[in-house]
Design a protein around this nucleic acid. Structure first.
Length: 323
DNA sequence: AATGAATTCAACCGCCTAGCG
DNA sequence: CCGCTAGGCGGTTGAATTCAT
């Protein structure tokens, strides 16, 4: 096995892409679809390895990519999913329409992680660094357990999405770097008529319904039955005819326009969109003792509770509701 | 205005895994 | 079942940009 030899080929260009290269790649994929990335560069007249082309396409040129600043809901979703899934950026990206895993990873590393650290929250475990006075371990243990279930569910969903993507890729591009509204389809063989139905991959955020999945993949269907209940009593599927329970949660997240309190309020210190997180409160809490410190720990408890609620909104909590 | 430090993010690297022959 | 390959993923790098002094 080992390393793929394609990048070792002599004479292949590396480094930043030029507009001309972008244009070549874009034109080729629009015309032919990407097909085999391995053979694409030669066909498209590019002196790049297939891997580089794939990366450029998926992270930059793809027309259904939203660029620019992350909004509150997106930040919220990233942090909450990271608490559940860890550094599984591609899994997280499936719940953030039009954002790439690379972009999410970068944003986490350069912005969100620092914020958590400033709050005194471990960005890996999402727990306060000195948590003992709060008795949070029970919540954390439950959260960890739920994370396993959510992780398994996301894997199944991601696999289904990949299968669907292979059969049919259709996207309506929003205007992006001068690219106008387009619809295009790969020339991949579409053998199964059932799977030719319009799969809107533009918004991968849990658009897969139970019935859709059951029809398209018996394997996934079986897995869903398996996931139907857990030893914690947590219900992962709300109703047979409805989406996954977490789907509902994510939709609720996205509907939560103008959130001012709860998780986001806590994390952003009540700042409005676009303003940076004010570390004053945290720094004050760190320097002082007594009341300020208690507020800080209370905030940390709300932080965990909010993640907890994100997974299971019906779970009892004495903190204020997120949304 | 100059310069060094800090930050950002596109791109690369190398490992893992599914799928095919 | 085995070996090989392509695609995908997460970690890391480093050039470009922004910020602070």
């Amino acid at each position: 096995m080992g390393r793929s030899p394609c990048c070792d080929k002599m004479g292949l260009k590396k480094g930043p892409w030029t507009p001309e290269e972008d244009q070549k790649l874009l034109a080729y994929i629009e015309e032919h679809g990407h097909g085999s990335w391995r053979s694409l560069p030669e066909k498209a007249g590019l002196h790049r390895c297939g891997k580089s082309c794939r990366l450029r396409w998926t992270n930059y040129l793809r027309p259904d990519i939203k660029r620019g600043k992350f909004n509150l809901q997106e930040e919220q979703t990233i942090i909450q999913l990271h608490a559940l899934l860890g550094n599984r950026w591609s899994a997280i990206a499936t719940h953030l329409p039009k954002r790439t895993d690379n972009e999410i990873k970068n944003y986490w590393n350069t912005h969100l992680k620092k914020r958590l650290v400033k709050m005194g929250i471990d960005p890996v475990t999402h727990k306060p660094k000195n948590e003992s006075p709060l008795g949070l371990s029970k919540n954390a243990a439950t959260l960890s357990h739920m994370a396993q279930w959510e992780s398994a569910r996301l894997e199944a969903e991601a696999r289904l999405a990949r299968e669907s993507k292979l059969l049919h890729y259709q996207t309506k591009a929003t205007s992006h770097r001068g690219f106008t509204h387009k619809t295009w389809t790969t020339k991949t063989t579409q053998g199964n008529a059932d799977q030719q139905q319009q799969q809107q991959l533009e918004s991968p955020t849990s658009t897969v319904s139970f019935s859709d999945m059951k029809e398209s993949s018996t394997e996934v269907s079986a897995k869903m039955e398996f996931l139907g209940s857990s030893s914690t009593g947590m219900t992962l599927i709300k109703e047979p005819e409805n989406d996954w329970i977490s789907t509902t949660i994510f939709e609720a997240t996205q509907m939560a326009e103008g959130v001012e309190e709860g998780f986001t309020g806590l994390l952003l210190g009540g700042d409005t969109l676009g303003q940076s997180f004010s570390a004053d409160k945290i720094e004050t809490a760190g320097e002082s003792s007594g009341g300020e410190c208690n507020n800080y720990f209370e905030d940390s408890k709300n932080y965990l509770d909010s993640i907890f609620n994100f997974v299971d909104p019906s779970a009892p909590s004495d903190s204020q509701p997120m949304f």
